[in-house]
Design a protein around this nucleic acid. Sequence first.
RNA 1: GCGCGGUUAGCUCAGUUGGUAGAGCAUCCGGCUUACAUCCGGAAGGUCGCAGGUUCGAGCCCUGCACCGCGCACCA
Length: 742
Amino acid sequence: MAEELSKAYNAAEVENKIYKRWEDSGFFNPDNLPGERTRVFSVALPPPNATGTLHLGHALEYSLQDAVVRYHRMKGEKVLWVPGTDHAAIATNTKVEKILIKEEGKNRHDIGREAFVKKVEDFVAASRSTMQKQIRQIGASLDWSREAFTFDEPRNLGVRTAFKRMYDAGLIYRGFRIINWDPKGQTTVSDDEVQHKPEKGMLYTFKYSADFPIEIATTRPETKVGDTAVAVHPDDKRYQQYIGKDFNVEFAGKKLHIKIIADDSIDSEFGTGAVGVTPAHSIIDAEMAQRHNLPMVQVINEYARMTDQAGPLVAGQKVKEARETIVKWLNDNNLLTKKDSIDINISVADRSGGIIEPLPKLQWFVSVNKEFSIKQSSINGVASGTTTTLKDIMRKSVENGQIKIMPEREEKKYFNWINNLRDWNISRQLWYGHRVPVWYLITHELGSLSAQQAGVSEENTYCGIEAPKGEGWVQDEDTLDTWFSSALWTFSTLGWPDKNAPDLKTYHPTSFMNPGYEILFFWVARMILMSGFLLGEIPFKTVYLHGMLRDAKGHKFSKSLDNGVNPLDIINQYGADALRMSMIVGIGPGNDANFDTNKVKAYKHFGNKVWNIARFVLMNVPETEPSDKAEFTKEDSVLIDELKKFTEEITGDMDNYRLYLASEKIYHYVWHTFADKIIEESKPKLVSESLAVKASAQRMLLEILTVSLKLLHPFMPFITEEIYSKLPIPDKQLLMVEKWPE
RNA sequence: GCGCGGUUAGCUCAGUUGGUAGAGCAUCCGGCUUACAUCCGGAAGGUCGCAGGUUCGAGCCCUGCACCGCGCACCA
């Protein structure tokens, strides 16, 4: 009889020991993998934000990726899975500032840039080490020797290099534009970081003054002190006579010069069919202003207060107060004709929750429509040496099937996003993040102005990987959108910008990418953009988008509901294998799922079942003399044939990333075929008088157990590795590098 | 407004190319049977949202509708 196993499986005892054995083996690093490995399989871990600890959503993501990675490693491929952490500029900046305000009653401006950044760095260091531990406990077979951080030196060099190349190609430019300003976070945010919240609003219909001929309607009367035109539809009969005319009016104590313009974008049906155009505080109006050459008057500042330009009645007031003031003024002057309750969406910054104010500002942008010549490209449909755009690269990479997005429905969202995409605002007024690698030569007194505000000329602007030589250069104050550095992740982790880096040559494009669908635009699209521009290739071949995890009742996990679950508590109670299975079985690609500990419990029981199957087999096979030479009886060889067929089916599922099906099938086979039928029916054989029957059964059981462990290993790596180590098989290696059965 | 997803057993969800409905949990009955009571044997439970259509045959394909959820756009 073989080595005796304890009666019940104890995950806690086994898991740490096994992970250490894996890590000590060096096999997480593809350079150390045994055998000849020609096919490459590489994956970049979506780096978790350095904002704290991991939650169950991460467990889901890592369970899935580890299963994929382990499968390919067992298939004999050269497998690299790169770990890392995201500095998550805006999220971390916001989080640490919140803590600062709570604990010390100060914001980042109170303690200054240097002190604040130091605080963030300390916070990040602590988060990172916590998360590394957590990831190990899930069993993720990551190559820790290649661990990266989106804000370490090599990645910073990558960011500077990328910026410089895009700047030189004219794809990054500085422009005075209407941007999304977050008064709470005191920074701009990109269009994708703005969320729309439905709210009840008021639509006010009024005239600027008694002598103005047209009534307009607005939900934001306070912005109307910044109007420079009234727009109507060119075909609107009511207003034909006014088109092209100018009017001087006095509105709420502010003198306005209003031009009547005709623009196709106006809906004659809405309100009065006439729109007051506020170029400084609406992106749409700004576009109209550009078409009609209208001046721009900024009446709201960065603190969401009215500027001096807003006129004496409201100057200095908060936006909300100003609205009341203006409405009262309209009432007092008999100019308000209608008040209608209406549904509106207010724009909110997704990190801080601040109400977005569109403001004109000098910011850095990535131009998505500008043509450039691509020197070298392996993207189908974008030939080397031709002219293309970033939008075109993003579109073609997916359109031609080089990148496959799963589930397929997400492709539609992707294309829709590209079609509506505007230039990407990449500069932030945050302090934690990659600094914009641009310097300005200041030749005059700055006074209270920053170099950026001073609006230095182009000749006095330098963009470079390193700071320029000489006196008087001041670096741009802004930091970059966190997604700018994340967008480089698949190759910045492989040695780029050194284009001869061995890892880059071997492992890029990567094979598989597994983020949540909520970052399709933020991240997936931007990676395709950057990889396309900087390397002329796709960043990954398959994107498998997973869904969100909610609590058992279907609610989002959130601080306010206090329904968070620490994955480590679950692991301590049920084991990592059980948690992993519960995260994979039955959750189709891109589908949200509810987390229920009952499901985890069920797979803990399954683990115990597997354990006892092994116990039974080991009790019944000879310890030293493996029966691998025994002839199978007819009956047993049928079972082996069925196993082979089953294996092929599983392999097919694995190759097509149907892990949610594969795992369930294996579960079913192991429990309800192997244990319930095969083992039960083997019992008489094992006590058979016929030595041939007995030997066949022994060999058959060992064979099925071995194959089952292999099939199950990607999903439940710990218990399978532990059992495998006890099997009486010659020339064993670690199960993680054993050959996938055929 | 445009688009997407969901609606299957009491609950949470699977169902890969159309072929007599599956899992876990919960329920009921009976069992310590050469591993496992974290278990075994058995049972009950479904007009697969509604209405049409295609087909020899539809949970799966087509049309329409309803409800729930999501993305994007508009929001003067």
